[in-house]
Simulated assay, not measured.
Amino acid sequence: MELKIRQEDKKDFKAVFELIEKAFENVAFSDHREQFLVERLRVSDAFVPELSLVAEQNDQIVGYILLTKIKIKNETGKTAESLALAPVAVLPDFQGKGIGGQLIRTAHDKARTMGFGSVILLGHEKYYPKFGYQMTSQYGIRLPFDVPPENCMVIELIPGALKDVSGVVGYPKAFFE
Results as ranks from 00 to 15, higher is better:
152 C>T: 13
10 K>Q: 10
134 Q>P: 00
27 V>Q: 00
90 V>G: 02
25 E>S: 14
95 Q>W: 03
56 E>L: 06
110 K>G: 02
11 K>D: 10
93 D>N: 14
51 L>W: 05
101 G>V: 08
76 T>K: 12
85 L>R: 01
88 V>W: 04
85 L>E: 02
39 E>W: 05
145 F>Y: 15
159 P>K: 08
174 A>N: 11
125 E>G: 09
129 P>L: 02
121 L>V: 08
36 F>G: 06
22 K>Y: 05
11 K>I: 13
116 F>H: 10
51 L>K: 02
80 A>T: 14
10 K>W: 12
28 A>N: 04
9 D>T: 14
9 D>P: 01
141 I>E: 02
68 T>H: 02
80 A>S: 15
60 Q>P: 04
38 V>D: 02
172 P>L: 12
60 Q>I: 08
12 D>G: 01
32 H>T: 08
76 T>I: 08
120 I>Q: 08
115 G>S: 11
116 F>P: 02
150 E>R: 13
140 G>P: 10
20 I>W: 01
22 K>I: 04
10 K>D: 14
12 D>A: 03
164 D>C: 03
47 F>G: 10
87 P>W: 05
51 L>Q: 01
174 A>T: 11
52 S>D: 12
145 F>A: 06
57 Q>C: 06
72 I>K: 01
70 I>R: 07
58 N>H: 06
38 V>E: 00
34 E>N: 05
126 K>L: 13
12 D>Q: 13
122 L>T: 03
167 G>E: 13
144 P>S: 03
135 M>K: 14
168 V>W: 01
78 K>I: 11
147 V>Y: 14
89 A>D: 02
121 L>R: 04
48 V>G: 07
47 F>Y: 15
84 A>T: 13
96 G>Q: 05
176 F>S: 14
48 V>P: 01
113 T>M: 11
166 S>E: 10
32 H>G: 06
154 V>W: 02
129 P>I: 05
23 A>C: 03
74 N>F: 00
15 A>D: 12
2 E>N: 09
43 V>I: 15
5 I>K: 06
64 Y>E: 09
61 I>Q: 05
138 Q>A: 11
129 P>M: 07
64 Y>V: 00
170 G>Q: 15
87 P>C: 07
55 A>P: 01
11 K>G: 10
79 T>P: 12
132 G>M: 09
136 T>N: 04
111 A>R: 01
160 G>Y: 03
130 K>A: 08
167 G>A: 06
24 F>R: 04
84 A>P: 07
165 V>T: 11
39 E>Q: 15
